[in-house]
Amino acid sequence: MVLVTDLLTDTNLTANYFATDVYVHGTLELGLLENRRGDRLLALPESLIRAIYTGLDNETGQASMLVLYNCGRWWGKNFYTRFCEELTDYHNRPVSSLSMPEFMQALEQCWLTHGWGQISLDSSYREQGFLVLKIRASAFIYYAPKLERPVGFLETGALQAFFSELSGETLHCVQTVCESLGAEENCFVLGIKDRLTVAETGVEQGLSHTEIMNLLVGQGA
């Protein structure tokens, strides 16, 4: 027999932890922006994001892509730790006990609430060993300098580190298509490094996401 009182032992029911209007708190008079645990948040104005790109380009030129990618990797690794810590504290159970859809829902909501855009997982190629992540409306990509190649360097690094931590394997990430080049969404493919070389060639040739995925899947056959 199910007793409702047993389910309400601590009267706390866990729900949508990262819901925007409860996650972000602010005291404008003090200039404070915090998350629901009291950790400080920082709002980045558009001009600062632009300035970071310009500054990096002036200082490091060609290398700025690599610098951003490495920053992304640091960000992704630390973000994974914080993300799991917050979810574990909130649900009072290890993150590993959450199902994949629950975990992804939390990640999607978290990404959105932090203003990084709409992220979603496409697991159609999972059996072939590839994970695809799609991000719409990314501010980092929107304000990036226009190049003839995808420019989500930060996200590429961040997703690579995040999902490497999650899977316990060293993954590599390649952005296949980019909003800055007219694509509807930014697509990122994750997998073992050796198997993603084909994807990098495909990106250089300007192939579409589906074409690149077909190449990737086809190489094992």
């Binding site: 819901a19 829902q105 909501q109």
Partner: peptide, 14 residues
């Protein structure tokens, strides 16, 4: 609706 959107449908499915 605002707080549970996306979350609740996921739970229903899982």
């Amino acid at each position: 609706r605002r707080r549970l959107e996306d979350w609740l449908p996921t739970m229903v499915e899982v």
